[in-house]
Amino acid sequence: DVEPGKFYKGVVTRIEKYGASINLNEQVRGLLRPRDMISLRLENLNVGDEIIVQAIDVRPEKREIDFKYIP
């Protein structure tokens, strides 16, 4: 289970102007929005990149997770 405040290694699977889709595994994925990137710009991400993200909002009833990137 993903817990708010914990850090996870994820893989960038899609990049859109509203954010990047991050997969932690086949069943768990979430969104990294541009506003939640401290020192990383969306255009510097590539599909397949592995990054460390922090879960900031977990809504299991909607199967949604928001991530934050902290270098």
Rank of each mutant, 00 (worst) to 15 (best):
K6Q: 09
Q27A: 13
A20N: 01
K6V: 08
E61F: 05
E43I: 07
R35E: 14
I22C: 03
R59E: 04
Q27G: 13
K62I: 09
I56L: 12
E26C: 12
V58N: 07
K6L: 07
L42W: 08
V53L: 07
V11L: 09
V12E: 00
K62N: 10
I38W: 05
I15C: 07
P4K: 14
S21M: 15
Q54H: 04
Y69V: 05
R33F: 05
S39C: 15
N46V: 12
N25S: 14
V47I: 13
L42K: 04
E61D: 14
V12F: 01
R63S: 12
R29P: 04
R35D: 11
E26A: 14
N23K: 15
K6F: 07
P71G: 13
I38L: 08
Q54P: 00
T13K: 04
A20G: 02
I65C: 07
V28K: 03
D49Y: 04
I15E: 00
S21I: 15
R33M: 05
Y18K: 12
V11S: 03
L45S: 00
G48W: 04
G19P: 02
Y18M: 11
V11T: 10
E61R: 08
Q27I: 12
D66Q: 09
G10T: 01
G48F: 02
N44V: 08
N23Y: 14
N25T: 12
V11A: 01
E16T: 15
I52V: 13
L42N: 03
I65W: 11
D1N: 14
R63K: 14
S21H: 15
G19F: 10
V2P: 05
K6E: 07
D49L: 05
N46T: 14
Y8V: 01
D36Y: 08
I65G: 03
I22E: 01
D49W: 07
L31W: 10
G19Q: 05
L31Q: 06
I65Q: 03
N25P: 03
F7W: 11
R41G: 12
L31F: 10
R35N: 10
R14W: 09
I56D: 02
K17G: 10
L32T: 02
G30P: 06
P71V: 07
Y8Q: 01
G30T: 01
M37C: 09
E50H: 14
T13Q: 05
